[in-house]
Deep mutational scan, measured.
Amino acid sequence: MGFKLLSKLLVYLTASIMAIASPLAFSVDSSGEYPTVSEIPVGEVRLYQIADGVWSHIATQSFDGAVYPSNGLIVRDGDELLLIDTAWGAKNTAALLAEIEKQIGLPVTRAVSTHFHDDRVGGVDVLRAAGVATYASPSTRRLAEVEGNEIPTHSLEGLSSSGDAVRFGPVELFYPGAAHSTDNLIVYVPSASVLYGGCAIYELSRTSAGNVADADLAEWPTSIERIQQHYPEAQFVIPGHGLPGGLDLLKHTTNVVKAHTNRSVVE
C-alpha cells in the first residue's frame, strides 16, 4: 500500500471513529477524501466538511520552486461564519470567499490569524475590503508590521502568557507558548472536538522541520505538551499544512522538532 493511500485511509478511519463516538456532533463529509496538494491548482481553494458547521479550507501556493498546501478553518456561528487564517495570499483568499459563498452561503463576518507569517495573514486586506472584521493577538499584529505583512485590524486580548485561553464565538483560542513562531495560536472547536494546530503542528508525513527561522526550538516541545494537557479530548487535529489526523500529530511534531534540534547540535 502506497504512503499517500495509507495517509488518506488514516484520515478516513479517524473521521469514521469520530462519527461513531459522537453521532450528534459529527456529520463528516462523505463526498470524498481530504484534498491534497496535487489536486488543488494554485489560485483555487477546496472546502472539506469535518463536522456539522465545521470545515477546513485548503489552498496551495508556490514557494521556492515548489507547491505547498495550506489549511485553515471555518466555523459556523449562528447565521454567520468565523474564518481562521487566510488562504495564503490575496488571490487565494478572494477564491476562498467565493467558494464559501458557493458552498455554504453564509457571510464571513470575523477572521482570526493564528500567527504573523504570510500563509496566515496574506489576504487580510481582501477580507477587510469584503467587510470582514480581522483579528490577531497584539504580538501577531506587531510582528506582521515588522515583517511588512498585512496586519489584522483588531487585537485579541488575554493571550499574552503561555497557557492563556479565551473564548471567541464558537471557538476557544489558546496560546501554548512559542513553537513554530513566538505568537502562534491554537484554535479548538469544543462542539466538535476539532483542534486546529496551525503551523505549530505537523502532518504525519512530514519528517523535516522546514521553516524554523522564527521558531523557538527549545520551547516548542513544552508548548505541545500544554496543548495535549489542555485538549486531551480532541479527536480531529488539523495541521497548518497537509493531512489531518488525531492527537498523534502532536507527538510526531515533537519528535521531528527534537530530531532537528539534535542534528543542529551535532553539526
Score class of each variant (00 low, 15 high):
Thr114Ala: 01
Trp55Tyr: 09
Ala95Glu: 14
Gly163Thr: 10
Ile227Lys: 02
Val212Met: 09
Gly105Thr: 08
Thr134Asn: 05
Gly53Pro: 08
Ala130Gln: 15
Tyr188Pro: 01
Gly240Gln: 01
Glu225Asn: 15
Val266Met: 06
Val212Phe: 15
Leu5Ser: 06
Trp88Pro: 00
Thr153Gly: 09
Ser162Gln: 15
Glu203Pro: 09
Ala98Gly: 14
Gly89Pro: 03
Ser113Met: 05
Ala129Lys: 14
Gly177Arg: 01
Lys258Val: 13
Trp220Gly: 01
Ala218Asn: 09
Val189Arg: 00
Leu81Glu: 02
Ile17Cys: 05
Ser205Leu: 12
His57Met: 01
Ile151Phe: 09
Arg120Gly: 09
Cys199Glu: 00
Arg141Val: 08
Ile40Val: 07
Gln49Cys: 06
Ala21Ile: 05
Gln228Ile: 12
Asn262Ala: 08
His117Asp: 00
Ala19Glu: 05
Ile74Tyr: 02
Ser205Asn: 15
Ile50Thr: 07
Leu249Glu: 00
Gly240Asp: 03
Tyr135His: 08
Val132Thr: 12
Arg141Ile: 07
Thr109Pro: 14
Val237Gly: 01
Tyr188His: 10
Thr207Gln: 11
Asp248Pro: 15
Val124His: 04
Leu127Asp: 03
Ser160Val: 13
Lys102Arg: 14
Ala98Gln: 12
Leu81Gln: 01
Gln61Ala: 07
Leu9His: 13
Ala200Ile: 08
His252Leu: 03
Arg206Ser: 12
Glu99His: 15
Tyr12Lys: 05
Asn262Leu: 06
Ala94Ser: 13
Tyr175Asn: 06
Pro41Met: 14
Ile58Thr: 06
Val257Thr: 14
Gly53Gln: 07
Arg120Glu: 07
Glu101Leu: 14
Val126Ser: 14
Ser161Glu: 12
Ile224Asn: 12
Val171Pro: 02
Leu10Phe: 13
Glu101His: 15
Leu13Lys: 10
Ile151Cys: 08
Ala178Gln: 14
Ala192Met: 08
Phe63Leu: 05
Ile100Ala: 13
Ile50Val: 07
Phe3Ala: 07
Leu106Val: 14
Gly163Met: 15
Asp29Trp: 13
Leu185Met: 15
Pro69Ala: 08
Gly122Gln: 06
His154Pro: 03
Asn71Val: 08
Gly105Tyr: 15
Val171Ser: 05
Val45Gly: 04
Cys199Lys: 00
Phe174Pro: 02
Glu150His: 15
Asp52Ile: 05
Gly198Pro: 00
Ser38Ile: 12
Leu82His: 14
Glu172Ala: 13
Leu97His: 04
Ala179Glu: 03
Ala111His: 13
Ile74Gly: 01
Ser223Gln: 03
Val67Trp: 06
Tyr48Met: 05
Val166Glu: 10
Glu219Thr: 14
Tyr188Leu: 07
Gly245Lys: 03
Glu44Trp: 09
Pro239Lys: 01
Asp77Val: 08
Thr14Arg: 05
Tyr68Ser: 06
Glu44Ser: 10
Tyr34Val: 08
Val132Pro: 01
Ala218Cys: 15
Val237His: 00
Leu159Cys: 03
Asp119Leu: 00
Ser27Leu: 07
Ile74Arg: 01
Gly43Ala: 10
Gly32Val: 06
Ser31Leu: 08
Ile100Gln: 03
Gly131Thr: 10
Gly240Ile: 04
Val11His: 08
Phe26Lys: 07
Val42Asp: 14
Pro152Lys: 03
Glu157Val: 14
Leu185Pro: 02
Lys102Asp: 15
Leu159Arg: 02
His115Ala: 00
Ser30Trp: 12
Trp88Arg: 00
Leu156Val: 08
Gly210Tyr: 06
Gly197His: 01
Pro244His: 15
Phe3Val: 09
Glu101Cys: 14
Pro232Arg: 10
Ala19Phe: 15
Tyr12Ala: 09
Val189Gln: 04
Ser137Trp: 11
Ile84Gln: 00
Gly2His: 15
Gly105Lys: 15
Ala87Gly: 12
Leu249Lys: 01
Val112Met: 09
Ile40Tyr: 13
Pro41Phe: 13
Trp88Phe: 13
Lys258Gly: 08
Gly210Phe: 03
Ile227Tyr: 00
Pro244Arg: 14
Arg263Lys: 05
Ser191Trp: 05
Thr36Trp: 08
Asn92Glu: 14
Ser31Met: 15
Arg263Phe: 04
Ala136Arg: 03
Gly32His: 07
Gly210Ala: 13
Met1Ile: 03
Gly210Ser: 13
Glu225Tyr: 04
Leu185Ala: 02
Thr261Pro: 10
His241Arg: 00
Val146Phe: 09
His57Ser: 05
Pro170Tyr: 08
Gly53Ser: 08
Gly177Pro: 00
Pro107Phe: 15
Pro138Ala: 08
Glu147Asn: 10
Gly197Met: 02
Pro41Asn: 12
Pro232His: 15
Ala259Lys: 05
Arg226Lys: 04
Ile50Tyr: 07
Pro138Trp: 08
Asn92Phe: 01
Tyr196His: 04
Ile201Val: 11
Ser70Trp: 00
Ser155Ala: 09
Tyr188Gln: 02
Pro170Thr: 06
Ile201Asn: 02
Ser181Arg: 01
Ala19Thr: 05
Gln235Tyr: 07
Gly242Phe: 02
Ser162His: 07
Ala51Ile: 13
Pro244Val: 13
Thr207Phe: 13
Ala234Ile: 13
Ser193Met: 08
Ala130Gly: 09
Arg142Asp: 11
Pro107Val: 13
Val121His: 01
Glu233Ser: 10
Val256Asp: 02
Gly197Val: 14
Val146Gly: 11
Phe26Gly: 06
Ala213Thr: 11
Lys8Arg: 09
Leu13Ile: 15
Gly123Arg: 02
Tyr188Cys: 02
Leu250Asn: 00
Val171Asp: 02
Arg167Thr: 10
Glu150Phe: 05
Leu217Lys: 04
Leu204Thr: 09
Val166Lys: 13
Glu39Ser: 08
Asn211Glu: 09
Pro107Ile: 15
Ser113Asp: 03
Ser38Phe: 10
Thr86Pro: 02
Val187Phe: 01
Glu39Val: 12
Ala59Leu: 09
Ile186Arg: 01
Ala209Pro: 15
Asp85Ser: 00
Leu243Thr: 14
His252Ile: 04
Pro138Gln: 12
Trp55Val: 03
Asp248Asn: 05
Ala95Arg: 09
Lys258Thr: 10
Phe26Ser: 07
Pro41Val: 06
Gly65Met: 06
Pro69Gln: 05
Gly177Trp: 02
Ala111Leu: 15
Arg110Ile: 08
Ile50Asn: 15
Thr222Cys: 06
Glu80Gly: 13
Gly169Asp: 08
Glu219Tyr: 04
His260Val: 11
Glu233Ala: 08
His252Phe: 09
Ile84Asp: 00
Asp85Gln: 00
Ala59Gly: 06
Asp214Gln: 10
Leu13Gly: 05
Trp220Tyr: 04
Phe174Trp: 03
Pro232Asp: 13
Arg142Leu: 10
Arg141Leu: 07
Ser38Gly: 10
Leu195Phe: 03
Leu159Asn: 00
Leu82Asn: 09
Asn149Tyr: 15
Ile20Arg: 12
Ile40Arg: 09
Pro35Gly: 11
Ala95Leu: 12
Tyr12His: 07
Val126His: 04
Leu156Tyr: 02
Ser30Phe: 06
Glu219Gln: 12
Tyr175Leu: 13
Gly53His: 06
Thr36Gln: 07
Arg110Thr: 11
Gln61Arg: 06
Leu6Asn: 15
Gly245Ser: 09
Gly148Arg: 11
Pro244Gly: 14
Lys8Trp: 12
Ala215Gly: 11
Asp214Asn: 06
Thr134Trp: 03
Val126Cys: 06
Thr86Ser: 15
Leu195Met: 07
Leu81Asn: 01
Phe116Leu: 03
Ser31Tyr: 15
Asn184Met: 02
Asp29Cys: 13
Thr153Ile: 15
Thr109Asp: 11
Asp79Gly: 12
Thr253Val: 00
Asn211Gly: 11
Val54Ser: 04
Asn262Phe: 05
Glu267Pro: 12
Tyr231Trp: 11
Gln61Tyr: 05
Gly246Asn: 08
Pro221Ile: 11
Asp64Gly: 07
Leu83Gln: 09
Gln229Trp: 11
Ser113Gly: 12
Leu47Glu: 01
Met18Lys: 04
Val54Cys: 04
Ser208Glu: 13
Leu127Val: 13
Leu82Pro: 03
Pro221Leu: 11
Ala192Tyr: 06
Ile227His: 01
Ser160Glu: 11
Val194Tyr: 03
Gly78Phe: 15
Ser22Glu: 05
Leu5Phe: 14
Ile50Ala: 08
Asp164Glu: 14
Glu145Ile: 14
Gly2Ser: 07
Gly78Thr: 13
Asn184His: 02
Ser162Trp: 14
Leu5His: 04
Arg120Lys: 04
Tyr196Thr: 02
Val265Gly: 13
Glu157Ile: 15
Tyr135Pro: 01
Tyr188Gly: 03
Ser38Asp: 08
His230Gln: 06
Ser161Lys: 14
Ala129Asn: 13
Tyr68Gly: 09
Ala259Trp: 09
Asn255Ile: 07
Leu127Lys: 02
Tyr135Met: 06
Glu33Thr: 09
Ala111Thr: 11
Ser22Cys: 11
Asp214Cys: 04
Val37Gly: 09
Leu24Glu: 07
Trp55Phe: 12
Arg128Gly: 08
